[in-house]
Design a protein around this nucleic acid. Structure first.
Lengths: 221, 221
DNA sequence: TTATTTCGATACGGACCCGTTCCGTATCGG
DNA sequence: CCGATACGGAACGGGTCCGTATCGAAATAA
């Protein structure tokens, strides 16, 4: 039925390994096609194009690629978008140094801040995350792959802080994590016009740690 | 040029006042059409339909309404969506009682929590906000109309708290507001699987006020 | 060389959509 | 009653998209 014989859509699993696989007979797939397509989709999303406005036809056109080359690799738009999403996660979260909970949290939040500012990520993250959230299947995949790992890192830091007494241990870890993370997320994803200014991570962490109610001249040492 | 003479698209300005305007000559517009259309769009969005998948044709079909009736009221999908958005804002935010900053913040956050749980709002808010965020023009309008007012209410409470000494006055009001609001927003909009459990507003407000670092036996009176 | 697979390009039929226009009917003001 | 405007329904021409197929050329393995 399928003219290509064994389809072998590269989508699920390895993210676009289109280049020649061992013992393949004919002309190998061009890696340039894979990158051109992914880059094009990212560029379009950066420019504010909606996923709904993205068609396989348009992607092929703007990438300078034949439609056949697309369908040879991905079964449809959804499969393609999944690979595009995965291509955003190559930059890994920094390992928190582990000296103090305060500094570790700053490191993790600073990563989010810089990510929200990064040339490639800024618009893409805003747009892609927004767009992807609108498509349950894509969002589930993104969350399962990326978000969960980040949350776990924060949990670990907080649990360590509870053990060392740097953090109150009478609170729910998940809620605690959100107190630190969500202000940064909100600015990065929801309030695009607000600035992710220098030192924001420190201010958030310190304020949440210290509390908003005035302290009655408490010594911290 | 336009067959309808003076078009008078009701969209911008009054949100769907389609019923008869004074001194109109012919058959008045049916209010049933307006409500049927808006309700249908909300229902579809609740069911997870993307804005991109919403066509005027489909809206008319599912609402049991002629396309002409749509184009008689709205110039296009965007204008229609704006009116749908406006229809979500009829439920107004409660006025904070003004006894204590802590209780006022709880009231405001509790409103967000209940809104996130409400039968009609839950899926609609999640879906609509997500969808609308993906369309800059719609998002700007929504933000200008709704979000700003809510933020100002929080600002007012916090400024009052700074004056009465209930809140540290050495902090940026906007950042402060986000420390309280964004955890609730994150749960309501981003983490749909998490629960907006009873007492969440109180826990957020109290924890942010008190701080996450263990207090050294501080008296609060 | 030969068989195979890829490439970009182009075309196809079928589906859906857009915004407009026209029906026949219903409902209002004058 | 009559002119005007509304209604739902159906059709229009023009467009985009989908997924598949076919083309000649290029690139590889056997």
């Amino acid at each position: 039925m399928n003219g290509t014989g064994t389809p072998a859509h590269g989508s699920t699993g390895t993210p676009a390994q289109g280049t020649a696989r061992a013992g393949r007979r004919g002309r190998p797939r061009s890696a340039a096609v894979d990158t051109a397509v992914v880059e094009t989709v990212l560029r379009l999303l950066e420019q504010g194009v909606t996923i709904g406005e993205l068609s396989m036809e348009r992607i092929a056109r703007e990438a300078g690629v034949g439609k056949a080359a697309l369908y040879r690799r991905w079964a449809g738009k959804e499969e393609l978008m999944l690979d595009v999403l995965r291509s955003l996660d190559d930059v890994s979260q920094p390992e928190p140094p582990g000296v103090s909970v305060r500094d570790d949290l700053v490191v993790l939040l600073e990563f989010l801040r810089r990510r929200g500012l990064a040339k490639r990520s800024s618009a893409v993250l805003r747009t892609v995350v927004t767009q992807v959230k609108a498509h349950p299947r894509l969002w589930n995949e993104y969350h399962r792959t990326v978000v969960t790992a980040r949350r776990e890192a924060v949990f670990a830091v907080l649990r360590r802080g509870m053990a060392t007494g740097e953090v109150r241990s009478d609170l729910d870890v998940e809620l605690l994590a959100e107190l630190f993370v969500s202000p940064m997320l909100t600015r990065a994803l929801l309030h695009e016009w607000e600035d992710l200014s220098e030192g924001l991570a420190e201010r958030i962490v310190d304020t949440v740690l210290e509390g908003v109610r005035p302290r009655e001249r408490a010594f911290s040492g």
